[in-house]
């Protein structure tokens, strides 16, 4: 297993696209809480200080912070999914996957290597998200009691599942198309196109559950939109078991499809 991971790392370390996309993503991740701090300070300074409000750091409050930030981070996952598409599709457009099989890698090992890469990246990004939430939470949250801090930490594993799902879906597109450029375009385009049937089901036919079954939506529902709460005073504040089931189902489905594409097709 370490050998397969090492092979994947040797393929990534000198790769420019990996560092560019990864850095972009990490910068955006950190910019989100920082911008929120500046923005809320500015709002307080210019409008609310006159009415006696000193701080509006509700967004950073434990335990809401887990949901608030992972929800926003999700919208930037496409950067990392593109990275996965490039990484996997390139192996076929350059024929390096073919050469590696000739050199003695089995198809199964190739598949496992890619899964290790996806899993490691998802784990790393999840850890960064968790650390950011903790740091900014302790800096700005009005409550810092351990019980409250940890009460909604379930959104962190939910974020991990969301990443794993989206990366597996990206891998599926890459294995199907085998071209980096078109692969990325299809990935992004699909993200937009899914909004159409989703809107029809959700708002037109009011079949919310069907809308939740579409692949892109399937993992986003794990982390419900936390912001209506500030206006409507109601929202999901935990991961729903049924949503978890749908996500795990999709993860299993993409795993199966990806394995099938690697084992069956000519390299």
């Amino acid at each position: 297993m370490m050998r397969l991971l090492r092979i994947e790392l040797l393929k990534l370390a000198p790769a420019k696209y990996f560092w560019i996309l990864m850095m972009m993503f990490l910068v955006i991740m950190m910019a989100i809480p920082v911008t929120t701090v500046f923005l809320s300070d500015w709002i307080v300074d210019s409008f609310l200080s006159e009415v006696g409000v000193e701080q509006i750091n509700v967004l950073f409050d434990f335990s809401d912070i887990w949901q608030n930030f992972t929800f926003v981070f999700q919208y930037f996952t496409v950067l990392l999914s593109s990275l996965v598409v490039i990484n996997v599709a390139q192996e076929f457009s350059l024929s390096t996957a073919r050469q590696q099989v000739i050199d003695g890698l089995s198809r199964r090992e190739f598949f496992q290597g890619k899964l290790l890469f996806i899993g490691t990246m998802a784990l790393g990004v999840t850890l960064v998200a968790a650390v950011l939430c903790l740091v900014f939470g302790y800096m700005y949250s009005s409550v810092t009691e351990m019980d409250t801090v940890l009460s909604h930490i379930q959104f962190i594993p939910a974020y991990f599942l969301h990443l794993v799902h989206d990366f597996l879906f990206a891998m599926f597109i890459a294995l199907l198309i085998r071209r980096t450029g078109i692969g990325v375009v299809v990935l992004i385009f699909y993200g937009w196109m899914e909004a159409i049937p989703e809107a029809i089901f959700r708002y037109g036919l009011k079949w919310e559950w069907v809308a939740n079954l579409l692949p892109n939506g399937a993992t986003k529902i794990l982390i419900g939109n936390p912001f209506p709460k500030f206006i409507l005073q109601q929202t999901d504040v935990s991961v729903q078991p049924i949503d978890l089931l749908i996500s795990l189902g999709y993860i299993g489905f993409w795993l199966f499809m990806n394995r099938w594409l690697i084992m069956k097709k000519d390299f």
């Binding site: 393929k11 000198p14 790769a15 420019k16 350059l94 024929s95 390096t96 050469q99 000739i102």
Partner: peptide
């Protein structure tokens, strides 16, 4: 073995 043409990562 080499089949058809030399295959490597061009940017490496």
């Amino acid at each position: 073995a080499i089949l058809e043409r030399p295959i490597f990562y061009p940017a490496f």
